[in-house]
Nucleic acid binder design. Structure first.
Lengths: 223, 223
DNA sequence: CCCCCATGTGAATGGAGTGTGAACTGGGGC
DNA sequence: GCCCCAGTTCACACTCCATTCACATGGGGG
Protein backbone atom coordinates (compact mmCIF):
# COMPACT_ATOMS: atom_id res chain seq x y z
CA UNK A 1 0.00 0.00 0.00
CA UNK A 2 1.18 3.48 -0.73
CA UNK A 3 2.33 5.45 2.27
CA UNK A 4 0.40 8.29 3.86
CA UNK A 5 1.54 11.83 3.40
CA UNK A 6 1.91 13.94 6.52
CA UNK A 7 2.30 17.68 6.96
CA UNK A 8 4.13 19.39 8.54
CA UNK A 9 7.52 17.81 9.03
CA UNK A 10 7.75 16.53 11.70
CA UNK A 11 4.07 15.75 12.24
CA UNK A 12 2.47 16.13 15.66
CA UNK A 13 3.50 13.29 17.94
CA UNK A 14 -0.06 12.10 18.44
CA UNK A 15 -0.39 11.62 14.68
CA UNK A 16 2.79 9.59 14.54
CA UNK A 17 1.65 7.47 17.45
CA UNK A 18 -1.75 6.79 15.94
CA UNK A 19 -0.29 5.93 12.55
CA UNK A 20 2.21 3.53 14.01
CA UNK A 21 -0.47 1.96 16.16
CA UNK A 22 -2.66 1.38 13.14
CA UNK A 23 0.23 -0.03 11.16
CA UNK A 24 0.28 2.48 8.33
CA UNK A 25 3.42 3.48 6.57
CA UNK A 26 3.82 7.24 6.31
CA UNK A 27 6.16 9.98 5.25
CA UNK A 28 6.38 13.58 6.32
CA UNK A 29 7.00 16.52 4.02
CA UNK A 30 7.53 20.16 4.78
CA UNK A 31 6.36 21.75 1.58
CA UNK A 32 4.30 21.01 -1.47
CA UNK A 33 7.28 20.48 -3.73
CA UNK A 34 8.20 17.29 -1.90
CA UNK A 35 4.63 16.04 -2.07
CA UNK A 36 4.52 15.89 -5.81
CA UNK A 37 6.90 12.99 -6.14
CA UNK A 38 5.32 9.74 -5.23
CA UNK A 39 1.93 8.25 -4.74
CA UNK A 40 -0.05 8.61 -1.54
CA UNK A 41 -3.05 6.72 -0.33
CA UNK A 42 -4.09 9.72 1.77
CA UNK A 43 -2.78 13.00 3.11
CA UNK A 44 -2.93 14.24 6.69
CA UNK A 45 -2.63 17.97 7.14
CA UNK A 46 -2.28 19.24 10.68
CA UNK A 47 -3.68 22.74 10.93
CA UNK A 48 -3.47 23.14 14.67
CA UNK A 49 -0.46 25.43 14.49
CA UNK A 50 0.12 27.83 11.66
CA UNK A 51 -3.26 27.19 10.16
CA UNK A 52 -2.65 29.48 7.23
CA UNK A 53 0.41 27.61 6.10
CA UNK A 54 -1.49 24.35 6.42
CA UNK A 55 -4.35 25.64 4.33
CA UNK A 56 -1.90 26.81 1.69
CA UNK A 57 -0.35 23.37 1.65
CA UNK A 58 -3.74 21.71 1.25
CA UNK A 59 -4.59 24.05 -1.58
CA UNK A 60 -1.35 23.19 -3.29
CA UNK A 61 -2.17 19.50 -2.93
CA UNK A 62 -5.52 20.06 -4.56
CA UNK A 63 -4.02 21.98 -7.42
CA UNK A 64 -1.34 19.45 -8.14
CA UNK A 65 -3.05 17.49 -10.85
CA UNK A 66 -1.15 14.33 -10.12
CA UNK A 67 -2.13 13.85 -6.53
CA UNK A 68 -5.79 13.36 -5.93
CA UNK A 69 -5.29 11.57 -2.63
CA UNK A 70 -8.01 12.33 -0.10
CA UNK A 71 -7.08 14.92 2.51
CA UNK A 72 -7.72 14.56 6.23
CA UNK A 73 -7.43 17.86 8.07
CA UNK A 74 -6.59 18.11 11.76
CA UNK A 75 -8.05 21.14 13.41
CA UNK A 76 -8.75 22.51 16.86
CA UNK A 77 -12.34 22.67 17.98
CA UNK A 78 -12.01 26.41 18.37
CA UNK A 79 -11.03 26.73 14.73
CA UNK A 80 -13.96 24.84 13.25
CA UNK A 81 -15.61 28.00 12.09
CA UNK A 82 -12.63 28.70 9.82
CA UNK A 83 -13.54 25.68 7.76
CA UNK A 84 -16.71 27.26 6.59
CA UNK A 85 -15.23 28.86 3.52
CA UNK A 86 -12.64 26.18 2.84
CA UNK A 87 -14.68 23.11 2.11
CA UNK A 88 -12.88 22.48 -1.12
CA UNK A 89 -9.55 22.01 0.63
CA UNK A 90 -10.20 18.75 2.46
CA UNK A 91 -12.32 15.60 2.38
CA UNK A 92 -12.66 14.98 6.08
CA UNK A 93 -11.47 16.56 9.29
CA UNK A 94 -10.70 15.42 12.79
CA UNK A 95 -10.95 17.60 15.88
CA UNK A 96 -7.86 17.60 18.08
CA UNK A 97 -7.10 16.24 20.52
CA UNK A 98 -8.50 13.11 18.92
CA UNK A 99 -9.00 9.57 20.05
CA UNK A 100 -6.76 7.20 18.07
CA UNK A 101 -9.69 4.94 17.25
CA UNK A 102 -11.66 7.76 15.67
CA UNK A 103 -8.58 8.92 13.81
CA UNK A 104 -8.00 5.50 12.37
CA UNK A 105 -11.67 5.07 11.47
CA UNK A 106 -11.65 8.35 9.53
CA UNK A 107 -8.42 7.48 7.78
CA UNK A 108 -9.67 4.06 6.83
CA UNK A 109 -12.94 5.48 5.61
CA UNK A 110 -11.14 7.97 3.39
CA UNK A 111 -8.87 5.35 1.93
CA UNK A 112 -11.57 2.78 1.34
CA UNK A 113 -14.05 5.22 -0.13
CA UNK A 114 -11.38 6.80 -2.24
CA UNK A 115 -10.69 3.42 -3.73
CA UNK A 116 -7.01 4.10 -3.46
CA UNK A 117 -5.92 1.05 -1.67
CA UNK A 118 -7.06 -1.93 0.19
CA UNK A 119 -7.37 -1.87 3.92
CA UNK A 120 -4.45 -3.32 5.78
CA UNK A 121 -5.07 -6.96 6.51
CA UNK A 122 -5.32 -8.20 10.05
CA UNK A 123 -2.32 -10.41 10.54
CA UNK A 124 -0.65 -12.28 13.34
CA UNK A 125 2.97 -12.91 12.61
CA UNK A 126 5.79 -14.65 14.38
CA UNK A 127 9.01 -15.18 12.51
CA UNK A 128 8.18 -16.95 9.30
CA UNK A 129 4.66 -17.72 10.39
CA UNK A 130 1.81 -15.53 9.19
CA UNK A 131 -1.81 -15.94 10.18
CA UNK A 132 -4.38 -14.07 8.17
CA UNK A 133 -7.30 -13.55 10.51
CA UNK A 134 -9.67 -12.45 7.77
CA UNK A 135 -9.17 -15.37 5.46
CA UNK A 136 -8.45 -18.06 8.02
CA UNK A 137 -5.27 -18.96 6.26
CA UNK A 138 -1.80 -19.67 7.58
CA UNK A 139 1.55 -19.49 5.84
CA UNK A 140 4.96 -20.53 7.06
CA UNK A 141 8.11 -19.81 5.05
CA UNK A 142 5.84 -18.90 2.16
CA UNK A 143 4.19 -22.31 2.17
CA UNK A 144 0.45 -22.37 2.90
CA UNK A 145 -0.69 -24.53 5.78
CA UNK A 146 -3.87 -26.51 5.41
CA UNK A 147 -5.21 -26.27 8.94
CA UNK A 148 -8.52 -27.38 10.31
CA UNK A 149 -10.65 -25.07 12.40
CA UNK A 150 -9.42 -26.24 15.79
CA UNK A 151 -5.82 -26.35 14.67
CA UNK A 152 -6.12 -22.82 13.42
CA UNK A 153 -7.72 -21.57 16.59
CA UNK A 154 -5.09 -23.22 18.74
CA UNK A 155 -2.23 -21.88 16.67
CA UNK A 156 -3.75 -18.43 16.64
CA UNK A 157 -4.05 -18.39 20.39
CA UNK A 158 -0.52 -19.63 20.95
CA UNK A 159 1.03 -17.35 18.35
CA UNK A 160 -0.79 -14.37 19.81
CA UNK A 161 0.92 -14.99 23.12
CA UNK A 162 4.44 -16.03 22.19
CA UNK A 163 6.82 -17.14 24.89
CA UNK A 164 4.09 -17.70 27.41
CA UNK A 165 3.35 -21.09 28.90
CA UNK A 166 -0.22 -22.36 29.05
CA UNK A 167 -1.49 -25.37 30.92
CA UNK A 168 -3.73 -27.81 29.14
CA UNK A 169 -6.64 -26.70 31.25
CA UNK A 170 -6.04 -23.09 30.25
CA UNK A 171 -5.84 -24.00 26.60
CA UNK A 172 -9.01 -26.04 26.81
CA UNK A 173 -10.93 -23.19 28.35
CA UNK A 174 -9.43 -20.44 26.19
CA UNK A 175 -9.40 -22.21 22.84
CA UNK A 176 -12.14 -24.77 23.14
CA UNK A 177 -14.11 -22.47 25.36
CA UNK A 178 -16.19 -24.76 27.44
CA UNK A 179 -15.99 -26.52 30.76
CA UNK A 180 -14.15 -29.66 30.16
CA UNK A 181 -13.97 -32.89 32.08
CA UNK A 182 -10.87 -34.95 31.59
CA UNK A 183 -9.40 -35.43 28.19
CA UNK A 184 -6.23 -33.43 28.48
CA UNK A 185 -5.00 -35.73 25.72
CA UNK A 186 -7.06 -33.69 23.34
CA UNK A 187 -4.57 -30.86 23.60
CA UNK A 188 -1.60 -33.15 23.07
CA UNK A 189 -3.08 -34.63 19.95
CA UNK A 190 -3.85 -31.26 18.44
CA UNK A 191 -0.38 -30.03 19.26
CA UNK A 192 0.99 -33.09 17.55
CA UNK A 193 -1.07 -32.51 14.43
CA UNK A 194 0.00 -28.89 14.39
CA UNK A 195 3.65 -29.80 14.71
CA UNK A 196 3.46 -32.28 11.89
CA UNK A 197 1.77 -29.74 9.63
CA UNK A 198 4.29 -27.07 10.56
CA UNK A 199 6.94 -29.38 9.20
CA UNK A 200 10.18 -30.69 10.55
CA UNK A 201 12.01 -27.39 10.65
CA UNK A 202 9.29 -25.46 12.45
CA UNK A 203 7.87 -28.13 14.70
CA UNK A 204 9.93 -26.69 17.56
CA UNK A 205 7.87 -23.52 17.46
CA UNK A 206 5.54 -25.24 19.89
CA UNK A 207 7.57 -26.26 22.89
CA UNK A 208 6.66 -28.69 25.59
CA UNK A 209 7.19 -27.50 29.15
CA UNK A 210 7.27 -30.65 31.13
CA UNK A 211 4.74 -30.94 33.93
CA UNK A 212 3.26 -27.60 32.96
CA UNK A 213 1.98 -27.32 29.42
CA UNK A 214 2.97 -25.79 26.11
CA UNK A 215 4.36 -22.53 24.90
CA UNK A 216 4.91 -20.97 21.51
CA UNK A 217 8.25 -19.65 20.30
CA UNK A 218 11.14 -18.48 22.37
CA UNK A 219 10.86 -17.15 25.87
CA UNK A 220 11.16 -13.43 26.30
CA UNK A 221 13.66 -14.05 29.09
CA UNK A 222 16.29 -15.24 26.73
CA UNK A 223 17.24 -18.69 25.63
CA UNK B 1 -33.04 24.38 0.48
CA UNK B 2 -34.38 20.86 0.80
CA UNK B 3 -34.88 19.64 4.34
CA UNK B 4 -32.61 17.17 6.09
CA UNK B 5 -33.74 13.61 6.57
CA UNK B 6 -33.45 12.17 10.08
CA UNK B 7 -33.66 8.64 11.35
CA UNK B 8 -35.12 7.32 13.56
CA UNK B 9 -38.39 9.01 14.37
CA UNK B 10 -38.12 10.81 16.69
CA UNK B 11 -34.42 11.62 16.35
CA UNK B 12 -32.17 11.92 19.41
CA UNK B 13 -32.84 15.17 21.21
CA UNK B 14 -29.28 16.39 20.77
CA UNK B 15 -29.69 16.09 17.01
CA UNK B 16 -32.88 18.10 17.09
CA UNK B 17 -31.25 20.75 19.25
CA UNK B 18 -28.22 21.04 17.00
CA UNK B 19 -30.32 21.23 13.84
CA UNK B 20 -32.57 23.91 15.28
CA UNK B 21 -29.56 25.82 16.51
CA UNK B 22 -28.01 25.79 13.07
CA UNK B 23 -31.27 26.79 11.44
CA UNK B 24 -31.79 23.76 9.21
CA UNK B 25 -35.20 22.48 8.29
CA UNK B 26 -35.54 18.77 8.88
CA UNK B 27 -37.95 15.88 8.86
CA UNK B 28 -37.87 12.56 10.67
CA UNK B 29 -38.88 9.22 9.19
CA UNK B 30 -39.14 5.80 10.77
CA UNK B 31 -38.58 3.57 7.79
CA UNK B 32 -37.18 3.67 4.30
CA UNK B 33 -40.57 3.77 2.61
CA UNK B 34 -41.20 7.28 3.92
CA UNK B 35 -37.75 8.36 2.81
CA UNK B 36 -38.37 7.73 -0.86
CA UNK B 37 -40.85 10.55 -1.31
CA UNK B 38 -39.18 13.90 -1.36
CA UNK B 39 -35.81 15.40 -1.89
CA UNK B 40 -33.25 15.73 0.86
CA UNK B 41 -30.07 17.72 1.04
CA UNK B 42 -28.59 15.23 3.47
CA UNK B 43 -29.54 12.34 5.71
CA UNK B 44 -28.65 11.87 9.37
CA UNK B 45 -28.80 8.30 10.61
CA UNK B 46 -28.42 7.77 14.34
CA UNK B 47 -26.94 4.36 15.02
CA UNK B 48 -26.42 4.78 18.72
CA UNK B 49 -29.36 2.56 19.59
CA UNK B 50 -30.39 -0.38 17.45
CA UNK B 51 -27.38 -0.12 15.24
CA UNK B 52 -28.48 -2.97 13.00
CA UNK B 53 -31.75 -1.30 12.14
CA UNK B 54 -29.91 1.93 11.44
CA UNK B 55 -27.47 0.19 9.11
CA UNK B 56 -30.36 -1.44 7.31
CA UNK B 57 -31.96 1.96 6.87
CA UNK B 58 -28.74 3.42 5.50
CA UNK B 59 -28.42 0.53 3.11
CA UNK B 60 -31.96 1.09 1.90
CA UNK B 61 -31.13 4.75 1.34
CA UNK B 62 -28.14 3.79 -0.76
CA UNK B 63 -30.12 1.34 -2.83
CA UNK B 64 -32.95 3.74 -3.50
CA UNK B 65 -31.80 5.12 -6.82
CA UNK B 66 -33.67 8.38 -6.38
CA UNK B 67 -31.99 9.61 -3.23
CA UNK B 68 -28.38 10.52 -3.64
CA UNK B 69 -28.29 12.57 -0.46
CA UNK B 70 -25.06 12.25 1.50
CA UNK B 71 -25.37 10.26 4.71
CA UNK B 72 -24.03 11.36 8.09
CA UNK B 73 -23.89 8.53 10.56
CA UNK B 74 -24.01 9.04 14.33
CA UNK B 75 -22.21 6.38 16.25
CA UNK B 76 -20.80 5.73 19.70
CA UNK B 77 -17.06 5.68 20.09
CA UNK B 78 -17.27 2.11 21.28
CA UNK B 79 -18.96 1.09 18.05
CA UNK B 80 -16.39 2.56 15.69
CA UNK B 81 -14.96 -0.83 14.90
CA UNK B 82 -18.28 -1.89 13.43
CA UNK B 83 -17.81 0.60 10.64
CA UNK B 84 -14.92 -1.31 9.21
CA UNK B 85 -16.85 -3.29 6.63
CA UNK B 86 -19.63 -0.77 6.15
CA UNK B 87 -17.83 2.11 4.49
CA UNK B 88 -20.22 2.08 1.59
CA UNK B 89 -23.15 2.95 3.82
CA UNK B 90 -22.21 6.49 4.80
CA UNK B 91 -20.22 9.53 3.71
CA UNK B 92 -19.19 10.87 7.08
CA UNK B 93 -19.72 9.98 10.70
CA UNK B 94 -19.83 11.83 13.98
CA UNK B 95 -18.96 10.30 17.34
CA UNK B 96 -21.59 10.83 20.03
CA UNK B 97 -21.90 12.65 22.26
CA UNK B 98 -20.89 15.37 19.83
CA UNK B 99 -20.23 19.06 20.09
CA UNK B 100 -22.89 21.03 18.17
CA UNK B 101 -20.20 23.02 16.38
CA UNK B 102 -18.51 19.90 15.06
CA UNK B 103 -21.85 18.44 14.09
CA UNK B 104 -22.76 21.53 12.12
CA UNK B 105 -19.35 21.67 10.48
CA UNK B 106 -19.68 18.09 9.27
CA UNK B 107 -23.20 18.63 8.04
CA UNK B 108 -22.24 21.77 6.18
CA UNK B 109 -19.22 20.09 4.68
CA UNK B 110 -21.36 17.22 3.42
CA UNK B 111 -23.91 19.51 1.87
CA UNK B 112 -21.38 21.80 0.26
CA UNK B 113 -19.28 18.98 -1.06
CA UNK B 114 -22.37 17.08 -2.09
CA UNK B 115 -21.03 13.81 -0.76
CA UNK B 116 -17.53 13.51 -1.93
CA UNK B 117 -17.12 10.05 -3.18
CA UNK B 118 -18.98 9.06 -6.23
CA UNK B 119 -17.67 5.69 -7.08
CA UNK B 120 -15.70 6.21 -10.28
CA UNK B 121 -16.97 3.06 -11.91
CA UNK B 122 -20.09 1.17 -11.07
CA UNK B 123 -18.33 -2.09 -11.70
CA UNK B 124 -17.12 -4.79 -9.39
CA UNK B 125 -14.60 -7.08 -10.98
CA UNK B 126 -12.67 -10.06 -9.82
CA UNK B 127 -10.71 -12.06 -12.30
CA UNK B 128 -13.05 -13.08 -15.07
CA UNK B 129 -16.10 -12.00 -13.13
CA UNK B 130 -17.67 -8.62 -13.81
CA UNK B 131 -20.65 -7.23 -11.94
CA UNK B 132 -22.36 -4.22 -13.42
CA UNK B 133 -24.05 -2.52 -10.50
CA UNK B 134 -26.12 -0.25 -12.67
CA UNK B 135 -27.67 -2.84 -14.91
CA UNK B 136 -27.71 -5.68 -12.39
CA UNK B 137 -25.88 -7.93 -14.79
CA UNK B 138 -23.13 -10.37 -14.17
CA UNK B 139 -20.65 -11.74 -16.64
CA UNK B 140 -18.05 -14.42 -16.21
CA UNK B 141 -15.57 -15.33 -18.91
CA UNK B 142 -17.69 -13.27 -21.28
CA UNK B 143 -20.73 -15.41 -20.59
CA UNK B 144 -23.69 -13.62 -19.00
CA UNK B 145 -24.99 -15.05 -15.75
CA UNK B 146 -28.72 -15.19 -15.18
CA UNK B 147 -28.85 -14.46 -11.47
CA UNK B 148 -31.83 -13.83 -9.28
CA UNK B 149 -31.96 -10.84 -6.98
CA UNK B 150 -30.70 -12.60 -3.87
CA UNK B 151 -28.02 -14.45 -5.79
CA UNK B 152 -26.83 -11.18 -7.24
CA UNK B 153 -26.76 -9.44 -3.89
CA UNK B 154 -24.88 -12.29 -2.29
CA UNK B 155 -22.34 -12.45 -5.08
CA UNK B 156 -21.92 -8.69 -5.03
CA UNK B 157 -21.21 -8.65 -1.34
CA UNK B 158 -18.77 -11.52 -1.49
CA UNK B 159 -16.98 -10.21 -4.57
CA UNK B 160 -16.69 -6.77 -2.99
CA UNK B 161 -14.73 -8.30 -0.12
CA UNK B 162 -12.58 -10.91 -1.79
CA UNK B 163 -10.58 -13.26 0.35
CA UNK B 164 -12.40 -12.40 3.51
CA UNK B 165 -14.33 -15.04 5.42
CA UNK B 166 -17.89 -14.32 6.50
CA UNK B 167 -19.98 -16.38 8.84
CA UNK B 168 -23.49 -17.33 7.85
CA UNK B 169 -24.85 -14.98 10.47
CA UNK B 170 -22.83 -12.11 9.06
CA UNK B 171 -24.01 -12.87 5.57
CA UNK B 172 -27.61 -13.06 6.69
CA UNK B 173 -27.40 -9.70 8.38
CA UNK B 174 -25.35 -7.98 5.69
CA UNK B 175 -26.99 -9.38 2.57
CA UNK B 176 -30.49 -10.31 3.60
CA UNK B 177 -31.00 -7.53 6.11
CA UNK B 178 -30.89 -7.09 9.80
CA UNK B 179 -32.17 -9.52 12.35
CA UNK B 180 -33.14 -12.13 9.90
CA UNK B 181 -34.44 -15.04 11.87
CA UNK B 182 -34.05 -18.52 10.72
CA UNK B 183 -32.08 -20.99 8.86
CA UNK B 184 -28.43 -20.76 8.22
CA UNK B 185 -29.30 -23.33 5.56
CA UNK B 186 -30.59 -20.45 3.51
CA UNK B 187 -27.06 -19.29 2.94
CA UNK B 188 -25.87 -22.74 1.99
CA UNK B 189 -28.56 -23.20 -0.59
CA UNK B 190 -27.91 -19.84 -2.20
CA UNK B 191 -24.22 -20.54 -2.30
CA UNK B 192 -24.97 -23.82 -3.97
CA UNK B 193 -27.19 -22.16 -6.59
CA UNK B 194 -24.53 -19.54 -7.21
CA UNK B 195 -21.86 -22.15 -7.64
CA UNK B 196 -23.91 -24.11 -10.11
CA UNK B 197 -24.62 -20.97 -12.13
CA UNK B 198 -20.98 -19.95 -12.05
CA UNK B 199 -20.27 -23.20 -13.79
CA UNK B 200 -17.90 -26.03 -13.09
CA UNK B 201 -14.73 -24.10 -13.74
CA UNK B 202 -15.58 -21.14 -11.54
CA UNK B 203 -17.55 -22.82 -8.78
CA UNK B 204 -14.41 -22.75 -6.62
CA UNK B 205 -14.56 -18.97 -6.53
CA UNK B 206 -16.76 -19.35 -3.48
CA UNK B 207 -14.86 -21.38 -0.94
CA UNK B 208 -16.16 -23.09 2.12
CA UNK B 209 -14.25 -22.51 5.33
CA UNK B 210 -15.41 -25.32 7.49
CA UNK B 211 -16.90 -24.38 10.85
CA UNK B 212 -16.61 -20.74 9.92
CA UNK B 213 -18.42 -19.71 6.78
CA UNK B 214 -17.68 -18.79 3.18
CA UNK B 215 -15.20 -16.64 1.37
CA UNK B 216 -14.76 -15.43 -2.17
CA UNK B 217 -11.66 -15.95 -4.25
CA UNK B 218 -8.12 -16.08 -3.07
CA UNK B 219 -6.80 -14.40 0.00
CA UNK B 220 -5.13 -11.06 0.13
CA UNK B 221 -1.77 -11.22 1.78
CA UNK B 222 -1.04 -7.69 2.86
CA UNK B 223 2.49 -6.53 2.28
C1' DC C 1 -57.15 -16.76 -11.90
C1' DC C 2 -53.51 -19.66 -12.61
C1' DC C 3 -48.86 -20.57 -13.46
C1' DC C 4 -44.15 -19.94 -12.82
C1' DC C 5 -40.20 -18.57 -10.71
C1' DA C 6 -37.73 -16.93 -6.68
C1' DT C 7 -36.96 -17.94 -2.11
C1' DG C 8 -36.90 -20.32 2.36
C1' DT C 9 -37.03 -24.60 5.24
C1' DG C 10 -36.64 -29.47 6.85
C1' DA C 11 -34.62 -33.98 6.25
C1' DA C 12 -31.28 -37.41 4.46
C1' DT C 13 -26.59 -38.25 3.27
C1' DG C 14 -21.73 -38.46 3.17
C1' DG C 15 -17.49 -37.06 4.84
C1' DA C 16 -14.21 -34.29 7.21
C1' DG C 17 -12.89 -33.17 11.80
C1' DT C 18 -12.41 -34.16 16.47
C1' DG C 19 -11.98 -36.72 20.86
C1' DT C 20 -10.59 -40.80 23.42
C1' DG C 21 -8.34 -44.97 24.97
C1' DA C 22 -4.26 -47.52 24.75
C1' DA C 23 0.29 -48.61 23.48
C1' DC C 24 4.85 -46.67 23.09
C1' DT C 25 8.99 -43.74 24.14
C1' DG C 26 12.27 -41.31 26.78
C1' DG C 27 14.29 -39.26 30.69
C1' DG C 28 15.22 -38.49 35.62
C1' DG C 29 15.61 -40.26 40.26
C1' DC C 30 16.55 -43.89 43.31
C1' DG D 1 19.58 -50.79 35.74
C1' DC D 2 14.82 -50.28 36.88
C1' DC D 3 10.73 -47.81 37.67
C1' DC D 4 7.62 -44.23 37.15
C1' DC D 5 5.78 -40.38 35.09
C1' DA D 6 4.77 -37.32 31.36
C1' DG D 7 4.46 -36.75 26.70
C1' DT D 8 3.93 -38.78 22.13
C1' DT D 9 1.93 -41.51 18.70
C1' DC D 10 -1.60 -44.31 16.69
C1' DA D 11 -6.06 -46.11 15.34
C1' DC D 12 -10.75 -45.78 15.45
C1' DA D 13 -15.40 -44.30 16.59
C1' DC D 14 -18.46 -40.72 16.69
C1' DT D 15 -20.02 -36.06 16.30
C1' DC D 16 -20.94 -32.30 13.67
C1' DC D 17 -21.05 -29.77 9.47
C1' DA D 18 -21.75 -28.91 4.50
C1' DT D 19 -24.17 -30.46 0.81
C1' DT D 20 -28.00 -31.87 -1.60
C1' DC D 21 -32.74 -32.97 -2.48
C1' DA D 22 -37.53 -32.22 -2.16
C1' DC D 23 -41.13 -29.48 -1.02
C1' DA D 24 -43.77 -25.34 0.91
C1' DT D 25 -44.70 -20.52 0.39
C1' DG D 26 -45.77 -16.46 -1.93
C1' DG D 27 -45.62 -12.74 -5.12
C1' DG D 28 -45.86 -11.06 -10.04
C1' DG D 29 -47.07 -11.46 -14.77
C1' DG D 30 -49.57 -13.30 -18.43
Amino acid sequence: MEPILCYPDPPPSEVVRALELAGYSWEAVGDEAAANDGLWSAAIVAAEEEAEAAFAFARALRNADASVAPVLLLVRGSALSELETRHELFDDFCVTPFHPVEFEARLRHLIVRGGWSETPTELVTYGELVLNLETYQAIISGRPLDLTYMEYELLKFLASNPGRVFTRETLLSRVWGYEYYGGARTVDVHVRRLRSKLGEEHAALIQTVRSVGYKFGESRWGA
